[in-house]
Amino acid sequence: MTAVLPTDSARPAAEPGVPRVGVLLVNLGTPDTADAPGVRVYLKEFLSDPRVIENQGLVWKFILNGIILRRRPKTKALDYQKIWNTAKNESPLKTITRAQAEKLAAGIADHGHVVVDWAMRYGNPSMRSRIEALTEQGCDRLLVVPLYPQYSAATSATVCDEAFRVLTSLRAQPTLRVTPPYYDDPDYIEALAVSINAHLSTLPFKPDLMLASYHGMPKSYVDAGDPYPVQCAATTEALRKQLGLAPDKLLMTFQSRFGNEEWLQPYTDKTVERLAKEGVKRLAVVMPGFAADCLETLEEIAGENAEIFKHNGGEAFSAIPCLNDSEPGMDVIRQLVLRELQGWI
């Protein structure tokens, strides 16, 4: 018996004497509303995490509270409004993550007493609320699934931080497992290749080359030992081989830099601009570091970078959708979960 746990108060009671395994999918997060107040709440939680901004000293607190949280929410709210799921009044990231949880539950329904749920690291539904709900359902074992193919301290590690933080307040703690990064998992690489080829077959043009764009991070984090760019490079190389592409036909770049510090290079927007100026006319971008489409893929890449490309002489641009809750994408998540649940179900 496998179920998706409702995210409201109408939860079914736990069955006495029936131990359950909880599976919690976790993605980064999203504002609750596409307006300045909603974005401000989200950004404050996100940027106050020392895993995200490691120097949380007085200077940063002044910048965050005195400048960023006064100016940035209004601008980012306009970006969210461009991609907002108005039918459900939520961001696409929330819509997709919910669908992933529902399809995972259906996909492992024949593997015993498993309850599947989903949460956001920042924003709602919170990890605390969902972990507590799973334990109330009788889950004495919990598998946390960070939906980040590549590990970084600012993503995967902070999910673990929050999970353990929640457990410190529980008298009866569930046994905890966390899925590892899957950046070079053959199922993941194959799913990416299948998704890319399927999308390219629908385009009225053939790209001159493609970019594999990953979320960036400050170079100082890497200098301190974060393995993230090494794993991004491994994903890119495995994807090149799977697609049969030469190195100059799939380039690795990094997007979404923030502030004045040097970040991982080459930068996606600068590369898009350079390629267009050098005569590249047709470009496609895949984002292998994102398990679900979100602001960074739908607005930043499909919107902003498409404009940069065409403004500088490019003619045709396409952002390839993330795996989301597609059949190939769900196969990756299902196989990852079943592998890590061995011995529990």
Rank of each mutant, 00 (worst) to 15 (best):
A119Y: 09
D269T: 11
D110A: 15
A34E: 11
T179M: 05
V272A: 08
I63P: 00
Y151F: 08
P266G: 07
R339V: 00
G244P: 00
E304I: 11
T7I: 15
Q173Y: 03
P328N: 05
A193I: 00
H199V: 04
L104F: 14
A292L: 08
G225W: 06
M210H: 02
T95M: 08
L93H: 15
A133Y: 05
V332H: 01
A14F: 05
M120R: 04
N89H: 14
L251K: 13
L298H: 10
V145C: 07
A109C: 12
T33K: 15
A212R: 10
Y182E: 03
T271M: 14
T168C: 04
A172F: 09
N305R: 03
A224P: 07
A119H: 01
L69M: 08
T33W: 03
Y228D: 02
W60V: 03
V285E: 04
G343V: 07
A106F: 01
P266I: 06
F258G: 09
M287R: 07
R130Q: 15
E132V: 12
L209E: 06
C160A: 01
A246W: 01
L250Q: 04
Q56R: 07
D226A: 03
A319W: 05
Y228L: 04
R171F: 01
S48I: 05
A292P: 10
S213T: 15
V41A: 13
D8Y: 05
K76Q: 15
V145E: 07
I320C: 06
Q231C: 11
D223Q: 10
A163W: 02
T253I: 09
L250S: 00
A193Q: 01
V4K: 10
E300D: 14
V272K: 06
A193T: 03
E102L: 12
L167A: 14
Y182R: 03
S9Q: 05
L43R: 12
E273T: 10
F317W: 02
E102W: 09
G289T: 01
K277F: 05
A238L: 00
M210I: 06
A212W: 14
R121E: 12
S9N: 14
M252I: 02
A302D: 14
I108N: 08
T33S: 15
V222H: 09
A105V: 01
E315K: 15
R171V: 11
R257K: 13
L143I: 02
L43I: 08
P247L: 03
P50Y: 14
H111M: 13
P204M: 04
D140F: 00
I53M: 04
I63R: 12
S201Q: 13
D35E: 13
M330Q: 11
Q137W: 12
P6T: 06
P125W: 08
Y42A: 06
E300L: 03
G314L: 03
